[in-house]
Amino acid sequence: MTWDEIWPLLRQGTVETLQMTVWATMITAVAGVLLGLALVVTDRRGLAPLPAVHHLLGLVVNVGRSIPFIILLVALLPLTRALVGTTIGTTAAIVPLAISAIPFYARLVETSLREVDPGVVDAAHAMGASRVQIAGKVLLREARPGLLAGLTVTFVALIGYSAMAGAIGGGGLGDIAIRYGYQRFENSVMVAVVAVIVVLVQIVQLLGDRLVRRLSHR
């Protein structure tokens, strides 16, 4: 294949990959923060101790994390159809991507929130802050650099997972690598795709790190 033929493929693949991963990351950010916060808050020593809820959420997260993505992709087909009306295409791929990333990110969120200095939470209680104020103005705010670093890791992982979304016609760079590079032995396409993915990951990580550094005042 000539460069003129490869170029439009790459452009389209990159756009599709970004569509899938950016949307999935945004959904994961919201849901993961809520789930991670719920895990921390309902803990035995949390702001609103609810051990039963805590254990249930923990179980859901662990189950979600142990299912291999490729199986999740197939298992979620009915849900995907219910949510977006179709099971093929870029939009349809966002559903399994987000659902596999949410429990993963929720654990990262949980870890970041647990790292918030308990002395600060204590001080906020002593000031008469409500639990909602403590969750928002202390826990989430203090953990912001960690939350963002975790989201960067999640974004990068999603770029990797999105390659498998080609299996359900999700498109994207991974799909091109398989269809042209692997099935038609077009090594030049394969190399170009891998190069684009590497650059993409670099950019995401770099931007993430930079933002984390700006938010962190420790």
């Binding site: 204590d122 002593a126 000031m127 203090e142 005042h217």
Partner: peptide, 16 residues
């Protein structure tokens, strides 16, 4: 509690 001030050994300041 808002009318009772408290200071702490390790300060308890918000780093952010």
């Amino acid at each position: 509690r808002q009318g009772i001030g408290m200071i702490h050994q390790h300060f308890g300041l918000l780093s952010s």
